[in-house]
Simulated scan of single mutants.
Amino acid sequence: MKPALAIVLLLSAAPALAQHQGHDMPEPAPAEAKADPHAGHDMGDQPAPATNDPHAGHDMDGQADADPADPHAGHDMGAPSDGNAEPMDGMDHSTMGHGAGMAAPTASPGPDMETPPPPEAGSGPPRAADAIWGAEAMASSRNDLRRTHGNFPVFWFQGDRLETQVRGGEDAYLWDIQGYYGGPTERLWFKSEGEGEWGSSPEDAEVQALFSKAFKPFWDFQAGIRHDIGGPDTTHAVIGVQGLAPYMFEVDAGLFLSHRGDLTARVEAEVDQRITQRLILQPRIEANLSAQDIPLLGIGAGFDQIEVGARLRYEIRREFAPYIGVEQSWRTGRSADFARARGEDPSATSFIAGIRFWF
């Protein structure tokens, strides 16, 4: 080659050499080499193909961010450089490693997938204690448990009101007791209440014997007899209900039919309002009604007597509590007329002191 021609060729190649200065220039590819769309990737054990792009594998600023869903986004996926190349569709990438960041996600079970129980589940005895102590011994133990923690009879007695009442110089006494013997659903109840002036026999007194049967939670149906031992001798047939109403109101209601055919009724309700753990305020109301006038008993038709009061008690022990209170009573209608005829005031205010106990 002539020296002048060599100098011209060197001068024309200088810009291209300056452009790629600092790059490791691979060996020139054969003429039949085709463009590789995966240039710059780790192709495992496969030989690195030649590429026509001198910038393959470099970070090209200014290009749009690749879609993270497509691992080949941003690569040249165009047509091959010659007609001998296979189409891109159907290329097997399973053997190609694309780096740590391109690992295939691992499938996880869905939220509705459940692990089936092991085959031995449910194969044990229905009661584990039977396998240790024996079914016969445990059957006897369970019977004892039912007897001591279930349907067994108990005795309960309560002095609900044992009190003295101060009524403007005419002091009186009053008792109201009740109790039962039986199980949780069937019981024999007994009740007694009465009142009178100190130093004299009771003006009104009664005793009741009732059979009680639970018909729903906290409620009993009661039926039996009542006998009056104060005033005219009278016997009554009794039906009623007793239980715990909403908001913890204790309710006792009874319907009485005397042996003379007189029909009367009584409803009592009280509720405990705890001020402290031991100091309790108990509002109480009682209403007596009659279906007809009963002159022998001094009772008029309609509302016979209404009593409204409140008692404040202090539980020295849960089973023993003294109390004080106040109560207002009214006789209405014909009953008020009968009271005036006996020289009594149909309305009375009483200041109360008494004790309440149970065992």
Rank of each mutant, 00 (worst) to 15 (best):
F155N: 05
D204Y: 13
P184Q: 12
G159R: 06
G231Y: 05
N151A: 10
A214T: 03
P125Y: 02
S212G: 15
Y173G: 01
E197D: 10
P126K: 07
G169L: 08
V154Q: 12
W133F: 15
W189E: 01
A172K: 12
F215Y: 14
A139T: 13
A223R: 05
W175I: 07
D176R: 11
D171N: 15
A137E: 12
R142Q: 13
W175T: 08
R161L: 08
A209D: 02
R226P: 07
I225Q: 08
L162H: 03
Q242T: 12
A172E: 13
E203G: 14
W198D: 02
S140L: 11
G150E: 08
P126W: 04
G199K: 09
G199W: 09
G150W: 02
E197W: 01
E170Q: 15
H149C: 00
E203C: 02
F152M: 07
A205P: 01
T235S: 14
F155H: 08
G240W: 00
V154T: 14
T185I: 07
I132K: 08
M138Y: 03
G240Q: 01
H227W: 07
L210K: 02
D130L: 07
G194W: 00
E170F: 07
F155S: 10
D176N: 15
P126H: 05
I229T: 15
T148D: 12
F215T: 05
W133Y: 14
P184C: 00
P126D: 09
Q178G: 13
A223V: 15
R167E: 14
Q208E: 14
T185P: 00
W219R: 11
P232C: 01
F152H: 15
R142A: 10
I132A: 10
H236N: 15
I177K: 00
Q242P: 04
G196V: 06
T235M: 05
E163T: 07
A131D: 09
P184W: 00
F190H: 07
F152R: 14
